[in-house]
Nucleic acid binder design. Structure first.
Lengths: 226, 226
DNA sequence: TCATTTTTGTTGAATTTTCAACATACAATA
DNA sequence: TATTGTATGTTGAAAATTCAACAAAAATGA
């Protein structure tokens, strides 16, 4: 377990918790590290959502069943990533997804009820842990909200402009670098890559946009202030 | 303030907190009820996100600025609804949206730092409050995730089937009633209403679907178990 | 019951996207 | 430097969406 020290330190769940306190706290929470081999199931769809998972090594995929019964990958979690936290914290319900190891992996399991339960020793780490968990879930919420706002536009052009104006707001500037390749941007916007290219080209011609690789600059009547 | 008793009782934030404890706790948290007139701003875009809001009366709109400077309504909050909680709990950042009263309203403001801070009297309501807040945010997260999964499909047919299979899973049955009119369903799926009608008709003809008004039944090779 | 309003389904035209195939530019590496 | 492979832009055809206008059906209310 101690060999995963660096991983735990990098995990947002343990931010601002002193290194020497982490293991004591995990013991207090009854957290357990478990080893899984490739394709083994960590959480199965339908079982009650109790545990928060932290990937210690390997990689874990969150999978979902399609309406046609097709398996779909919701996300892939790498070491230091936390998963199933929303389900565990939303209370009660059963898992609508499964967590399956993409290869041999080691996972830390923490009972969400223990996280929320009163702690006898009233360790202040515990409070920080709750705060961290809240922050993680709230931040994810904001990301989802933003993506939803972007994806819900009807056309590629609108999606792109919505995304770019978010980036502009984030950078306090109309010029910025995006963290995506064209293919990745298309994936994020949930549109066809070549169609996206066409759209970017046209926006350039129309003078609404300048860009070179990952650098973008919004031009024209694009409002900013107010 | 006491006149809003019923509203507070209906608010998810105060679930499982004894009625007689609510006001004491609010005092302990330094929560304040404020009156606003129509169009007055509760939270302004750009200011630090500190407070969680609870609508006591009237109605509050969460507004956002478009890339073209257009105002867009993200959501409308009715009495007992809570708003700005994700921003307040995600830590640090400034608000990317504004909260504006759609009419004369009364709003309860609670400092999120006080919610998370250690409570001297260590009231157990406080713990329940944190738990409730976590649950609210996590549940919203799941709703967002689901909607994202649906909306990110490329075609209306796929969006519809994704939505319907979520409903089927939720009801443990291929037959169920949906809580939307056609127009509302189209809005939820972010597609054109008439186009949606066309799609539903075709799916009926193809024998994949039966439906009558709000009643739907998935047919055919739609997998369910496993 | 009748009249009115709202909701839903249908149609065709215009727009847009997707998809496949290909050309070019760029990057990595032998 | 030449070669190879990846990323990006371009094109045209097929498919899907949006949009506007209208018709039919259902709900509402006088």
């Amino acid at each position: 377990m101690e060999k995963y020290f660096e991983i735990l330190r990098a995990c947002a769940l343990f931010e601002h918790i002193e290194q020497q306190d982490i293991f004591g706290m995990l013991a207090c929470l009854g957290a357990k590290a478990k080893e899984y081999s490739k394709k083994q199931v960590v959480f199965a769809r339908g079982q009650p959502a109790r545990y928060v998972g932290v990937v210690l090594s390997g990689s874990v995929r969150i999978e979902q069943l399609d309406y046609s019964g097709q398996r779909g990958i919701v996300s892939t979690c790498q070491p230091a990533d936390i998963f199933a936290e929303s389900f565990a914290c939303a209370g009660g319900a059963t898992l609508p997804v499964s967590a399956v190891c993409a290869r041999d992996s080691s996972v830390l399991l923490i009972d969400s009820a223990r996280i929320m339960a009163p702690c006898d020793s009233s360790c202040h780490f515990h409070r920080q842990l709750i705060y961290n968990l809240m922050k993680i879930i709230a931040a994810k919420n904001i990301r989802f909200h933003r993506k939803l706002d972007i994806i819900s536009r009807r056309t590629t052009k609108e999606k792109l402009l919505a995304y770019l104006s978010y980036m502009a707001a984030e950078n306090n500037s109309r010029s910025f670098y995006i963290p995506f390749s064209r293919q990745e941007l298309a994936d994020y916007l949930e549109v066809d890559r070549s169609g996206l290219s066409v759209r970017i080209s046209r926006l350039k011609k129309e003078g609404m946009l300048e860009c070179d690789k990952n650098f973008f600059c919004l031009l024209g009547e694009t409002a900013e202030g107010t």
